[in-house]
Design a protein around this nucleic acid. Structure first.
Length: 493
RNA sequence: CGGGGCGUGGCGCAGCUGGUAGCGCACCUGCUUUGGGAGCAGGGGGUCGCACGUUCGAAUCGUGUCGCCCCGACCA
């Protein structure tokens, strides 16, 4: 392959990302504007995300259901803030069966309105609560500008929707699911995230409060990776979702909704990958290890393939997602480059020398600090005995997973600023290298808007205390007024 | 929606002072190769986004149109 290398991240991060997504065959642009085709390499990542999250949802008592793609337009209009938030990006179906519809149907941009309409039918008394539901679905938002995985006109996501008896219970659920997202980000995506609350201007249209997880990408921009909303009684009141309480009075239910999307795939890409291509945390890698057999003569081919086949069978039997690359029209070197581009966490090389020694060579996609250091300028190569190979691969996968999380955390903290003294200094950071600036905020939307105007940075969230490292609100870094919160400012996707 | 760019074999591009299409990669066949992107030989594949116009003749010039990408404002 002479078409060579990706544009380096340092040269043009955006070009690097686009080339990587296409070259690693994760996704490409569909014939329809703003839409993407998710190819098997990319969809495999999403499937693992789904599996991981779905289990966590079930473990916390949620059930899956499915609601229709099409929603009567009037449903959206019932919640004022909600319709205002979504109206500009709706796709609307006006015809069906060759006739104009009496009422236009919108393609769901999110499903609160239809789901709470149905909840209202299912709930009579407090014993019908809580409802803890989730759906895996596609939604459409007619975005002006799109980027593969990060923002597409149609995307895949899950949306959890719950109804509760009390406000406290709803708040607990909102925070519980935010916690689920955080755990998932850290344990599966190897991505450290900040948990916190959105400001009013960034709050979900129709929510009382929106909480989020925010991650930092390699270009030091923030990416909102997931949100969890306490909807209060805003939707239950307009959709008449009420129940008779323990005290006999009729009350409106308290709702929450929470979601993550295929954007997480983009997040994983931009968090870990390098100039050689995709880097995937093993837990989200459709293929954890690829075996590349090496041989010259026919006799060597026979012995190597016999040994490699046995290894493949053994590893598969142990439940490992392993492949063998038996293509004979490609040199081993070319295969190495290709599998690195595709982000396979480990390569297993096996040649005549290895077979003779009953070993293989394992090359991890990124250097693992706890293993023997690589020679200067070289890739880390681990010589591993074939006996007990599956355990070794599992332990390496686990080490790699931890390594990626540690690398990402180190990078995020190296680009986090908690002692910025002035607004000028803050602008310098935001306009320069970027990153997360923790600073006091007076809590007003005017201040927020001013910073956005002047720097294009927004308040990503009001972080939970564990992230502020003892900082307390003093005077607002922008206005000089008394501050209400420590906020994180950053440019964002 | 504003600014920029691009539509030519699967992909990336050249050809654009008009004369009926070419290069690299990929693909197919054969032989030699294979521990970090193999070599040689042969071969298949495109009515140049679409429409109209100018012309003896249009990938090339003109008008229109559709689409996509990138940068900005808006958003997961």
């Amino acid at each position: 392959m002479a078409d060579g290398k990706l544009t380096p991240r340092g040269e043009d991060f955006s070009a690097w990302y686009n080339e990587l997504v296409e070259r690693a065959q994760l996704a490409e642009h569909a014939p329809v504007r703003g839409c993407m085709v998710i190819r098997p390499n990319g969809y495999g990542i999403w499937e693992l995300i789904q599996q991981g999250l779905d289990k966590m949802f079930k473990d916390t008592g949620h059930e899956n259901a499915y609601f229709p793609l099409l929603i009567p337009k009037s449903f959206l209009a019932k919640e004022a803030e909600h319709v205002e938030g979504f109206a500009p990006e709706l796709a609307v179906v006006t015809h069906g069966g060759g006739k104009e519809l009496e009422e236009p149907l919108v393609i769901r941009p999110t499903s609160e309105t239809i789901i709470y309409t149905m909840f209202a039918k299912w709930v009579q008394g407090y014993r019908d609560l809580p409802i803890l539901m989730n759906q895996w679905a596609n939604v459409v938002r007619w975005e002006m500008r799109t980027r593969l995985f990060l923002r597409t006109a149609e995307f895949l996501w899950q949306e959890g929707h719950t109804a509760h008896e009390t406000e406290a219970e709803a708040e607990e659920e909102t925070l519980k699911m935010l916690g689920v997202y955080r755990t998932f980000a850290e344990e599966f995506m190897a991505t450290p995230v900040i948990t916190g609350r959105k400001t009013d201007s960034e709050r979900f249209a129709g929510a009382l409060r929106t909480y989020c997880i925010e991650a930092m990408m390699q270009d030091n921009k923030a990416l909102q990776a997931g949100t969890s909303h306490n909807l209060g009684q805003n939707f239950s009141k307009v959709f008449d979702l009420k129940f008779q309480g323990r005290d006999g009075t009729v009350q409106y239910a308290w709702n929450t909704s929470w979601g993550v999307s295929t954007r997480l795939v983009g997040s994983v890409i931009m968090t870990h990958s390098d100039d050689n291509g995709l880097v995937l945390p093993p837990r989200l890698a459709p293929t954890v290890a690829v075996i590349v057999p090496i041989f010259k003569t026919d006799e060597e081919k026979a012995t190597v393939l016999t040994a490699a086949d046995a290894i493949l069978k053994e590893l598969k039997a142990k439940g490992l997602r392993v492949k063998m690359d038996t293509r004979d029209n490609m040199s081993p070197g070319a295969k190495y480059y290709e599998w690195e581009l595709r982000g396979v966490p480990m390569r297993i090389e096996i040649g005549p020398k290895d077979v003779a020694k009953n070993t293989v060579v394992i090359v991890p996609r990124v250097t693992i600090d706890s293993e023997e250091a690589p020679a200067p300028g070289k890739k880390q190569k681990l010589f591993v005995n074939i006996d007990g190979l599956s355990q070794k691969i599992e332990s390496l996968a686990s080490a790699l997973q931890g390594q990626l999380l540690a690398n990402a955390l180190e990078r995020r903290e190296a680009n986090s600023y908690r002692n910025v003294k002035s607004y000028g200094e803050m602008c310098e950071i935001l306009d320069g290298s970027g990153g997360f600036v923790y600073a006091s905020w007076d809590g007003t939307p005017e201040t927020e808007a001013k910073v956005k105007d002047e720097t294009k940075a927004t308040i990503r969230c009001i972080p939970d205390p564990e992230f502020t490292q003892g900082l307390t609100p003093g005077t607002c870094i922008v206005s000089g007024r008394e501050a209400k919160h420590i906020a994180i400012w950053s440019k964002a996707y």
